[in-house]
Amino acid sequence: MTIAEPNTSSADPAVPRATQHHPPGPPTAPAPVAVEVHDVTVAYHRKPVLWDVDVQIPSSRLVAIVGPNGAGKSTLLKAILGLVPLASGTVEIFGRSLRRARSLIAYVPQRESVDWDFPVSALDVVLMGRYGRLGWFRRPGRKDRDAAMAALEKVGMKDLAHRQISQLSGGQQQRVFLARALVQEARLYFMDEPFAGVDAATEKAIVDLLREIRRSGGTVVAVHHDLQTVPEYFDHVLMLNMRLVAAGPTEEVFTTPNLHTTYGGRLTLLDQAAEAVRRSTAPGAPR
């Protein structure tokens, strides 16, 4: 059930779905849609965590999900990935159901979500990224191992491949997770706070990696905490506070009023961040 569909790379799945569900947009060609979240509500017990979120995420973009603590950012990722049950609504990825789009997706969870005392090496963890395409019961082979080593090299971790994961620093652990996502050779990457608690060098390495993914046509959707770096790192923003406050290209949406709506009155760096956007978008050239 997890065997990769053979024609995913050749066919462009975004084309049929854009004509199917959307009223013809403005005459300039709309970016193909990677994820379509349709009226999604998620409730834990009696409390709704996400309320009626309706948004499209364009492909080949670096997309940040921002919002205060408890705004449902991680929940939105998990809802898209089918890891939490939806109280209502639907999610489509490249115009398909989640089940049929699995092989196109890679997920980088929060670092705290796993037990780093687990007896595996960095290489083992990266190899797990290949399990999806291997399907049930097949063991990873030579080719998978090579791919894993290549991914580790890409994130600068080749020398530590055989290190037990508890002996890696926070930044190194995050790199291992990224390498694991890379070997999935996905077109759509979901990352839950990839920059949380990493050192400056790792942060830079991650940003370079994200840009490389975008260059090769991939899409990244990341929960992001540091508002200062949003305009520098991301070109599309989803602003969330239980409901969707705003979504769109960073330079249009990442504005002081929207930030105030998203965060209520309790933000101090907002105006600086908005100023940073204005500065970075002043020439008008999209990065």
Partner: peptide, 17 residues
């Protein structure tokens, strides 16, 4: 009570929509 609440949540949502 929980199940009842989930139903009323769905109903409220539908109404709002």
């Amino acid at each position: 009570a929980d199940v009842w609440r989930l139903f009323s949540l769905r109903r409220e949502l539908a109404l709002q929509k």
